[in-house]
């Protein structure tokens, strides 16, 4: 019996060891980043990871002397609008593919699926010409309009809508609900979790856009954070490490907070929607 206990203890110890090693691998970049954001750049440049002067000075510098807050604000606007638009348009498209009967429905669905195979990165040249012609360059709209809908989001919500029991539609029909009513009274609340998942997904992908805003925005008034950081790196002397790390921290904190609160929905939603 004690033999058995001893073995279990060793196993448990090994397990914690594994967990801690993995944690270190994941966390070191974070810790190092946050830590150095508190150190004076002069000390960091000497290769020191300790300083007698630990302060939030870098944050003050970043906020007062760079447009980092403006970048954050821009990204927030762009990401929120994109997210809302995708929730609406993806859910309406998914609704059509699940609950409407019309000629060519399956063909259209394959067309949607096919767009998932076409990388946006391979289409930037004509898209650039298009937004230039539409006069959208260097404006919020240029980062929102092309992403108002998403084939992936439609696909994910379709999978989720397919799980709604057909009887609910029949119950709605008996009461004479129109498609529009069934959509917002039943389908949307029923698929709440998938909707949250899509919300988180579309918010994050918009937030993480890099190439497209880099090509289409030229002023700090509209530039989102990702490209803002790039701008800071090229403008400031690349070696102002403390300030750069502080900017990175400012940017990452909102997403980390959002992530930890949304984690539960993300987990269940992704597994339900995407894989089945």
């Amino acid at each position: 019996m004690t033999q058995y206990n001893k073995k279990a203890k060793i196993q448990q110890f090994m397990h914690y060891l594994l967990l801690i090693i993995l944690t270190l691998f994941i966390l070191i970049p974070f810790i190092l980043g946050f830590w150095t954001s508190l150190l004076p750049t002069a000390d960091i440049s000497k290769g020191a990871l300790w300083s007698s002067h630990i302060s939030l000075d870098n944050y003050v510098t970043a906020v007062t002397q760079t447009p980092i807050i403006r970048y954050l604000f821009n990204s927030l606007i762009i990401s929120i609008i994109t997210m809302l638009a995708q929730i609406i348009f993806c859910s309406l498209s998914a609704y059509s593919f699940v609950f409407l009967k019309f000629k060519g429905r399956d063909l259209l669905f394959y067309v949607f699926l096919a767009t998932m195979m076409l990388p946006f990165e391979a289409e930037v040249i004509p898209n650039f010409t298009t937004v230039r012609t539409l006069g959208l360059l260097n404006h919020y709209a240029v980062m929102i309009v092309p992403f108002l809908t998403s084939a992936f989001g439609t696909f994910m919500l379709r999978q989720s809508f397919l799980q709604i029991p057909g009887e609910l539609k029949e119950a709605g029909d008996i009461e004479g609900l129109s498609h529009w009513q069934y959509y917002y009274k039943v389908v949307m609340p029923y698929s709440k979790i998938s909707i949250y998942t899509l919300a988180a997904y579309s918010f994050l992908s918009s937030w993480n856009q890099y190439l497209w805003p880099m090509l289409t925005t030229f002023s700090d008034n509209f530039r989102p954070v990702q490209d803002g950081l790039r701008q800071l790196q090229s403008q400031e002397s690349f070696n102002n490490w403390g300030m750069i790390q502080a900017s990175a921290a400012i940017i990452i904190i909102p997403t980390l907070i959002a992530l930890f609160f949304g984690q539960h929905y993300f987990k269940s939603g992704l597994n339900e929607g995407a894989i089945k």
Binding site: E167, L168, A171, V186, Y190
Partner: peptide, 9 residues
Amino acid sequence: FQNYALFPF
């Protein structure tokens, strides 16, 4: 209905 068709929300 067979599966009651209740709205879970």
